[in-house]
Nucleic acid binder design. Structure first.
Ligand SMILES: [Zn+2]
Ligand SMILES: [Zn+2]
Ligand SMILES: [Zn+2]
Ligand SMILES: [Zn+2]
Lengths: 127, 127
DNA sequence: TTGATAACGGGAATCATTGTCAATAAGCCG
DNA sequence: CGGCTTATTGACAATGATTCCCGTTATCAA
């Protein structure tokens, strides 16, 4: 993955390997129980997930019960924020949008979701 | 508002009146302290907010600290989920998207945000 | 006004997440 | 291959937002 700052421990490898086998979002607790054979502590799972998120290797979103759910990042898919006056544009990632598209599509019986999101505003210089 | 199932109590009126004066998102706890003159219990605030959300009168999103933040709904703005094969479409609301647009735009110094979001998938019949 | 019952509120309970800290094990140097 | 330094681990405690509980109070139709 993209993090050079962390040591390569058995626990971290196990977590990443597990995530690779998993396409859907998963919570820390679920990961903990599904990985019980690997003997990785819950604190370690929380720490590893947090690091992976910071390194940009994981998408996260918070579900309706307030629990965070994680998934390995796919591509370099992104969105745009652009100014309606000068056209200046900023790229951004939006895990919430990724998760939302999956959840919403699935809840309506759709599959193979893709989506488009763009935000238009007036930038500081154009106000 | 749009809820016929709830009684019209002093507390509920106070909460709605307060929300009307407030354009930004606010958390339950913040509402509690900012409304302390109105003597409304925290439990009541949580219940009222939850009811208002269920009735579609409030937008919610969960901030980075896992705390829910609320705001009175604006218009009947909505989004579309559509099938890439047959074109069938479903309308949906996405408070997360509304909140995301505001947050993200603001964080980049933009104002007067609007946005467009659409999800494309394959519907059950077209798989 | 009254009675049925929804709503209130204060405190306890829940539960995901974070902090603590002694024990352990990467990674490095010789 | 051994030690050394220090990041990492994991069991457990602590936190904090939200929900639950339950005796009390207020609403409102009749
Ligand atoms: Zn501009
Ligand atoms: Zn996206
Ligand atoms: Zn279709
Ligand atoms: Zn929208």
């Amino acid at each position: 993955m993209s993090a050079p700052t962390k040591r390569n421990t058995r626990q971290r490898r196990a977590i990443i390997d597990f995530l690779k086998t998993r396409k859907e979002f998963i919570s820390a607790k679920e990961l903990y129980s599904e990985m019980e054979d690997s003997k990785v502590g819950l604190s370690t799972i929380y720490r590893a997930l947090s690091d992976l998120v910071n390194d940009g290797d994981l998408d996260v979103f918070i579900d309706n019960d307030g629990e965070s759910r994680f998934r390995l990042c796919g591509s370099h898919h992104h969105h745009h924020l652009l100014c309606r006056k000068c056209g200046k544009s900023v790229e951004f990632q939006a895990p919430e949008a990724e998760a939302l598209a999956e959840r919403l599509g699935a809840s309506e019986g759709f599959s193979e979701m893709e989506h488009r999101l763009e935000i238009i505003g007036t930038c500081r210089e154009c106000v």
